[in-house]
Amino acid sequence: MSSSASLLFRFGIIADPQYAAIAPHIAMDRYYANSLAKVAAAIEVFNGEELSFVMTLGDVIDRSFSSFDDILPVYEKLRHEALFLLGNHDFSVSSGHLSDVAARLGMSSPYYSFLRHGWRFIVLDGNEVSIFAPPEGHHHRALAAEMLAELQAKGARNAHRWNAALSDEQFAWLGDEIAKAAEAGEKVIVMNHYPVHPPGEHGMWDSERIVALLASSSNVVAYLNGHDHVGNYGMAGSCHFVNFKGVVDTETQNAFAIVEVHADRIEIRGFGREDSRTLSI
């Protein structure tokens, strides 16, 4: 690990707590109720460090809007800023609550960007075109059904109901944010719930256009995501794609990380099941 002299800033990462007050799914090795204690343990570690923020990469809950009432108070013990993005399970709520999810997580918008120490973070809503997140009757639901049917007809590996896509509007916004960052001399880290690279069964339906954009943008350094609980890593162009492991998996082992940003590299310090990595810039 590096000397701290070149350290610009650091932040925390949690992926897929998928909390619910339900029995474990032993076959899938998912212990939903145990995530309360695991997130609390991660927060204790984070509170011992100087962090700019802590991002949870989606799937705060597994199901039921009332699950937020149990897990969000755990984050109140965090002495740093808690940021969220939307995962597919966060929409496993009654149809009447679909439009309340982002606000319940304290998000003013389903996708957004922010600056830290001259770096731009772009936070995507990977659920925008899906068969579960848009309100009933929304045109994004119909579009999602069409996209899914097309992918299923092609036998695509990611042709699953629990994946999704960006709208063309959000994709254009992503391109604009990257371009603005380039003009301002800012490096970019993109965050989303879903993986886009390497290709796999958990990938976004429109992964190819997202990877093409990020790989061709020299100021985009990394793309960080959850969703695939076993974790993964890939590279396209000069962009690192890091899939963090899910908190909900295993009865006792945790999974979270502290990401240290340097001018020439990013150091990921993994805890529990999470891998440590060095990503060169």
Results as ranks from 00 to 15, higher is better:
11 F>S: 05
20 A>S: 13
21 A>S: 13
23 A>Y: 04
27 A>I: 09
29 D>T: 07
34 N>H: 15
35 S>L: 01
44 E>A: 15
45 V>T: 15
47 N>S: 10
47 N>L: 12
48 G>A: 13
49 E>C: 12
51 L>P: 08
52 S>P: 03
55 M>I: 12
57 L>K: 00
59 D>F: 00
64 S>G: 05
68 F>P: 07
71 I>E: 11
73 P>K: 06
73 P>H: 07
75 Y>R: 06
79 R>H: 10
80 H>R: 04
84 F>A: 01
90 D>W: 00
91 F>R: 00
93 V>P: 03
96 G>S: 09
99 S>F: 01
99 S>P: 01
99 S>G: 06
101 V>Y: 09
102 A>I: 10
106 G>E: 10
106 G>N: 07
109 S>M: 07
110 P>M: 07
112 Y>D: 08
115 L>Q: 12
117 H>M: 12
119 W>P: 10
121 F>G: 05
121 F>L: 13
122 I>W: 05
129 V>E: 06
130 S>T: 02
135 P>N: 07
136 E>H: 00
136 E>I: 09
140 H>R: 04
144 A>G: 03
148 L>P: 07
149 A>T: 14
150 E>G: 08
151 L>M: 12
155 G>N: 09
155 G>L: 04
162 W>N: 14
164 A>T: 09
165 A>N: 03
169 E>R: 11
173 W>A: 05
175 G>R: 12
176 D>W: 02
178 I>T: 10
179 A>K: 11
180 K>D: 13
182 A>N: 00
184 A>G: 14
186 E>K: 13
190 V>T: 03
191 M>W: 02
192 N>D: 14
193 H>S: 08
197 H>D: 14
199 P>E: 14
201 E>K: 09
202 H>M: 12
209 R>E: 09
210 I>H: 03
216 S>F: 03
219 N>V: 08
220 V>K: 03
222 A>R: 01
223 Y>K: 07
223 Y>D: 08
231 G>P: 08
233 Y>T: 06
234 G>E: 14
237 G>K: 02
245 K>S: 13
254 N>P: 01
255 A>W: 00
256 F>C: 02
260 E>Q: 14
261 V>P: 02
262 H>C: 11
268 I>S: 10
274 E>N: 01
275 D>S: 14
280 S>V: 15
